[in-house]
Structures are given as structure tokens and as C-alpha cells.
Design a protein around this nucleic acid. Structure first.
Lengths: 229, 229
DNA sequence: CAATATTTTTAACGATCGTTAAAAAGCCTA
DNA sequence: TAGGCTTTTTAACGATCGTTAAAAATATTG
């Protein structure tokens, strides 16, 4: 045995491509799923290994058996939801190039919110941890959140032919992402203002309407290259 | 002595209007100031009484001498920054009615960001605690955050004559507040994307430019009552 | 100055945190 | 079935949390 073999990862590693075995490492997957749920409810430092263990219906030290630390688990969760999102995001642009900006944004948001309904965790995890402490006390996987947005932006630039300047496109995309993340993640707040149920279709319709109202003029601008003022 | 007199608040209450005494309750004020700083850096459940004590250069149990609980202190801090903001906010509308939307928004944002530079805590406290847990584990003073936005909206509606529908105005104001809060509170994130220093004038200029770019078309819309599409 | 009231410090409580070590249980193969 | 490996459980560690009680220090009043 080498010194390196003392690393505390499970000995029987999961095959990267599970092929036939539908649930090769059920415990590890249960933990990721439970951790996603817990990290979607509490900021990194407030979420606890014990909460995650309880959500996964296991004893909490088992989490440390599959993940060397809370930080590593958090990064695994971020990677997981980011992959899920990234893969889905690409498909949302299908066929949009044949539409006008309004119809395109309309369809894109439909696909977006359809995903958000099925994967409520991703946006909350990001929103809960985006506002950072000044220097110290950094949240692990913070740079992965940056990657998350960077990929989204690249997808957009690749899929949508635009005539606007890079500056204009960045202003638009940052604002799009900011509004989307907040309206989807802080639904408890916004919905309570509006007197709607946070997770309801009605709330998502309000979000869609609002985002189209605010963003459509500038989307037209960066697509058609109109003058700014 | 009545039973009620056993409440553990300091016996010599601060006079509501300090009149002449410039620093009547210096310790209490020191605590509020330190707590504002700490709550601006960490979400409610991560910020600790001990951090606040250290920031105020006092022993931490003294915090509980002036405030019965962490929750009460947090509410006092929110009230403090909300009052500060509310009072300032009203003055930002002075003279805007004689301007066109673009010049008015420009000046309003200047005043807004000037305040933000001097009071960096307010927006971070709100942003750090706006995304809530589902049901349980509620952050104290959450409804005060709602009030905070509600007052802002009312100020806007009172000061700016508009022809748009209430729905349109609400969509605009919610998005305005969301963008402002995030760009100001999560400057660490956005500035790092742009390669700028988070608290710098240059970053605030980017925020201003971005908010004008995104919001000006719809501001014109709700002021002039133009057709939506 | 003495007595009283207020403010601050010290010490400790029960609870929860992330992590580790060791024992127990389950599983596979010889 | 026996022995070795993987997985799970149990127990415990040091640290930090909010809060309380009592002692000490300081300020106020007679």
C-alpha cells in the first residue's frame, strides 16, 4: 500500500459511465440529491452535514465517507447542477434563430421556466451564495458559479446572431441572469408581495411577463443593432 | 417593583431625541454600528454575537445587555438602515420632475450611488437575507425588508408623475430594485467578472451605465404612457 | 465618603457544528 | 462456512454558537 492509498474515498469507485447498472452507488447519489435540497434552502455556512444526513436518511458521518469534506460535497453539488443546467440550456435555443426577438424570448423563457420547475435547486444555491463576504471566509466552488454564468453567456452568444457591441451584450446578459436568478430563487419574497403562491404557474407567468417587459427593448437593440438612444 | 420591571433592558433608556447630548448611549450605538458591519458581511445565521462584540471592541455578552436577543439586534439594525435609506431616498427625487426621463434617471442614480458609497451596509444586509428558507427558520425582520421596498415604491409613485398602468409600474420598480440591490451588494461577483475593483467609482459607473441601458426604455414607457409593443 | 444603581467582565450552560476513529454490520469470494 | 473487504453505525473530539448568572468595576446619588 502506498501512502496515497490512505485517501478516504470509497474503495469501489463508481464507474464513470454506469452503462447498465441503474443505481451503482445509490448512497452517493442519495447524498448528492439530499445535499442539493439542503444547499438550496440554506447558505453554505448554515447548511449542515447533519441536515443533509437526515434528508438522505443516513447517519451523518456517512457523508464524510463519500465526500472528504463539506466543501468537497458542495463543489460536487454545484458541478452536478451546473452540468444539468448547461446541458439543458443549449437546447433552449433550438429554432429561435427563425423567430423575431419577441417570439424568441417568449419561447426561451418558456423552456427556461419549465426547467426551473423541475430543478428548483440550482438557482437557489447560486442566489444564496452569490453575495459574498469581502475577502476571507470564501465559499468553496465560488469560481464554479462564475463558470456557470460564463457558459450561459457563451451559449447565448453562439446561438443568437447579434449586431450589438460586446459591452451592450454583456450589460444585457448580466441583467437577464440577475433578474432570472432573483425572481426564481427569491420567489418567496416576490410572490408574497404580489399575493401569489411562490412555486405556482401564476408566479412564473408574472416573472415571464416582467422579464419580457423589461428586457425586450434591449434584446431588440442588441439583435438588430439599433442606435442606443 | 412590578414583574415587568425585570426585563433586561438598560435602566437608563436613551432619550428618543438626544437634543444636545452628542453621544448619550455610546455603547449601544457602537453595537449597532458593529452589527451593521457584521450583518453586511454574513447572512443572519452565520453572523455571530461574538463577531459583533469583537467588531465593537466589547465583550460579547454586553450585546445581550443592550439587546435581549440576536433577533432583536438584527431588527434594530434593519430599522436603523431602513430609516437612513428612507429619509435619503425622498430627497433623490428633488427637481427630477422638470427633467426628461433620461436626465432624471441619470441624476437619480448619481444620488443613489453616492448614498451607496457612504452606506455600503444596507444593500448587502438585504441581499444576504432576501433569499429565504422555504417555511421554517424564518429570518427576523423579514417583513421589515418588505416594508423597505414598499416605501421605496411609494416614494417613486408619489414623486414621479406616470401614465403607465400599475402593473407596468410594479414590474419596472421590482426590476429596478432587484438590479440595484444585486449590482450594489454582489459587487464582489460582478466586478470580478468585469475585472474592476468592487467598490471603485469605475464599478459604480458600470452599474449606472447598465441600469440606464436596461431600464430607460421602460421608464419612458411608464412615464409617457406609450403603447407596450 | 457611603450606599446605591448602572455598566462591564468573567465564567459557564446546553446545543450544534465538521470531522475522526473504532466498532459493527453487510457483502463477496475462496 | 471462514476470512477479507466494503459499507454503515456509534461514539467522541474540539470548536463555536446564543444566552444566562454572578462577580467585578464604574458611575451616580445621598
Amino acid at each position: 500500500m502506498t501512502a496515497l492509498s490512505k485517501i478516504k474515498t470509497p474503495k469501489k469507485k463508481p464507474s464513470i459511465s454506469p452503462k447498465k447498472g441503474h443505481h451503482k452507488q445509490p448512497t452517493r447519489e442519495k447524498i448528492i440529491k439530499a445535499a442539493t435540497q439542503v444547499f438550496a434552502g440554506y447558505p453554505y455556512h448554515s447548511a449542515s452535514i447533519r441536515m443533509i444526513g437526515k434528508a438522505a436518511e443516513i447517519d451523518h458521518p456517512l457523508v464524510n465517507y463519500y465526500f472528504p469534506s463539506k466543501a468537497a460535497l458542495f463543489e460536487a453539488v454545484i458541478d452536478d447542477v451546473a452540468d444539468e443546467y448547461y446541458q439543458a440550456n443549449i437546447s433552449w435555443f433550438d429554432g429561435l434563430d427563425k423567430m423575431n426577438p419577441k417570439a424568441g424570448l417568449d419561447l426561451y423563457l418558456d423552456r427556461f421556466f419549465d426547467f426551473a420547475l423541475k430543478h428548483p435547486g440550482a438557482f437557489r444555491i447560486i442566489a444564496l451564495n452569490l453575495v459574498q463576504a469581502e475577502d476571507h471566509d470564501v465559499i468553496p466552488g465560488y469560481e464554479r458559479i462564475r463558470d456557470f454564468f460564463a457558459k450561459t453567456k457563451q451559449n447565448f452568444k453562439d446561438a443568437v446572431p447579434m449586431s450589438g457591441t460586446d459591452d451592450d451584450i454583456d450589460m444585457f446578459l448580466n441583467s437577464f441572469n440577475t433578474l432570472a436568478i432573483n425572481y426564481l430563487a427569491a420567489g418567496t419574497y416576490y410572490a408574497s408581495i404580489l399575493g401569489i403562491e411562490p412555486g405556482s404557474r401564476q408566479y412564473l407567468e408574472w416573472v415571464k411577463k416582467t422579464m419580457m417587459f423589461v428586457l425586450l427593448p434591449r434584446l431588440r437593440h442588441i439583435i438588430n443593432g439599433e442606435s442606443k438612444d
